[in-house]
């Protein structure tokens, strides 16, 4: 438990300057949205599709007021509620998509890199052709396909969320695959892999215990950067009305699309707040990703060097100096 905590905190303690700020601000922004997502039922004043309260129906395109801080939409729903519920949708989809593409990409990448041969060539070909498509176009096609395939909700996710997550998964798998496969290929040549084989380890053991830990290091960075990109793609899909149906969940992209017509008649609140949410969350996740990158990537990394304080030394103190505790080297001990 303590080790886990250390692992989470260590990027902060190891970085300095800009990277540290980026990481901090990014985590703060993303954290706010995470809180929105988790506690949406309590934070949001109304449901995402609620159009009437105890005092009757909400006003259509009502100005922001004390009951509706961010105003109401042309469907008489509360903008603030939709923004908060929307963050839940966005984070659900993105988490599902990132985890799924990470797991699939990682497994395929290690297999492909370690086994090599025709399986490797075939997988690389498939992944490269996925890469060759404009990713948004691919997401649209996949969303169409998967919405038709998935009829009912899976676990506690509605079918629209699953479909959107799957289409995002498809477009992000190649990124993990590529990185992991290439690191695997270079790690495979290392003596410790040969040593493992000399110990009698089977291919599965080599991949699980020797390659896995050495190839996942760059994955968290891609994960956070992908998450930012996924928010945008999801909003794009919603804007086009694909994937998540309006009755299933609140979706910022869909809200923006509804708000297009409002902008012309001077109604700014229906578009401003969902748009702001997208921008903020994407910025937050990108900052986390870039900050992590600066920490993890040794080329960019600048570590904090704590000054080394040597114990005082004088002629008659020689004997005590040798027994004095070692000077603190924390912060530069790992290289």
């Amino acid at each position: 438990m303590r080790g886990l905590l250390n692992a989470i905190v260590s990027p902060f303690s190891r970085t300095q300057g800009v990277a540290r700020w980026m990481l901090g601000v990014g985590v703060a922004i993303s954290g706010v949205f995470l809180v929105f997502a988790i506690f949406a039922p309590w934070l949001a004043p109304y449901g995402f599709a609620t159009f009437k309260g105890p005092h009757g129906d909400f006003a259509k395109l009502g100005h922001p007021n004390s009951h509706h801080w961010f105003g109401t939409t042309d469907l008489q729903t509360d903008v603030l509620s939709r923004v908060i519920w929307g963050s839940r949708t966005a984070l659900e989809v993105v988490t599902l998509a990132v985890i799924a593409s990470l797991v699939i990409g990682l497994v395929l990448g290690i297999l492909s890199g370690y086994v090599g041969g025709w399986a490797d060539r075939l997988l690389v070909l498939v992944m490269d052709s996925l890469y060759a498509f404009p990713s948004f176009l691919l997401a649209i096609v996949c969303a169409f396909l998967f919405t038709n395939v998935i009829g009912t909700s899976v676990l506690f996710f509605s079918s629209g969320i699953i479909a959107a997550a799957m289409s995002l998964t498809v477009i992000y798998i190649p990124q993990y695959f590529r990185v992991v496969r290439n690191t695997t290929i270079s790690a495979k040549q290392a003596t410790y892999v040969e040593a493992a084989r000399a110990l009698g380890a089977s291919g599965g053991v080599v991949m699980r215990r020797y390659l896995f830990g050495n190839v996942i290091q760059s994955v968290p960075v891609i994960g956070t950067l992908n998450a930012a990109d996924a928010i945008l793609t999801l909003a794009g899909l919603g804007f086009l009305g694909i994937g998540i149906q309006p009755n299933e969940a609140a979706e910022w992209g869909y809200d923006l699309q509804r708000a297009l017509d409002d902008a012309g008649i001077g109604v700014w609140w229906t578009s401003l707040y969902p748009g702001l949410a997208i921008v903020l969350l994407v910025t937050g996740l990108t900052l986390v990703g870039e900050g992590l990158n600066e920490t993890v990537n040794p080329v960019l990394r600048k570590r904090r060097l704590l000054p080394v304080v040597m114990p005082p030394r004088s002629r008659d103190e020689v004997s005590t100096t040798t027994t004095a505790p070692a000077p603190s080297l924390e912060g530069e001990s790992t290289t």
Binding site: T191, Y192, R209, G213, N214
Partner: peptide
């Protein structure tokens, strides 16, 4: 392989850093 074992040239490379 349990009966025939090997010691490698470069100990830094022969141990998994993780």
């Amino acid at each position: 392989r349990r009966h025939v074992q090997m010691v490698f040239q470069d100990p830094s490379a022969a141990l998994n850093p993780a």
